[in-house]
């Protein structure tokens, strides 16, 4: 499946590797986590209330729709968190009791 976001500039940055739901993805240094996840895919999380998939909205830290989990159980706001090599992100079931 193609991602939601498409690169049109600044594509010559060094690649970095992250894992999303156990799958390796390649992003670029300087990507936000949201960019990294949405160039590679089309989801960030599920709505808690059963109304479907979410993938952020405002991209400026206002709507809070893009919070994701790390495998280690931390929460990150994807649009304002820089993607770092080796990050292990979950978009599905949460590491929650």
């Amino acid at each position: 499946m193609t991602g939601l976001l498409h690169r049109v500039a600044e594509a010559d940055r060094p690649p970095i590797r992250l894992s999303v739901d156990g799958r390796e993805i390649t992003a670029l240094a300087g990507d936000t986590l949201l960019t990294a996840l949405l160039v590679a895919g089309a989801r960030l999380r599920d709505s808690e209330f059963g109304d479907g998939t979410r993938a952020g909205f405002c991209l400026m830290g206002a709507c809070q729709d893009c919070w994701v989990w790390t495998e280690a159980g931390a929460r990150l706001r994807a649009c304002s968190t820089p993607a770092e090599p080796g990050m292990r992100i979950l978009t599905g079931a949460a590491p929650w009791p």
């Binding site: 939601l4 949405l38 089309a42 909205f57 405002c58 991209l59 709507c63």
Partner: peptide
Amino acid sequence: WTLPGVTS
């Protein structure tokens, strides 16, 4: 409007 692909 909450579907992935809709942004502000």
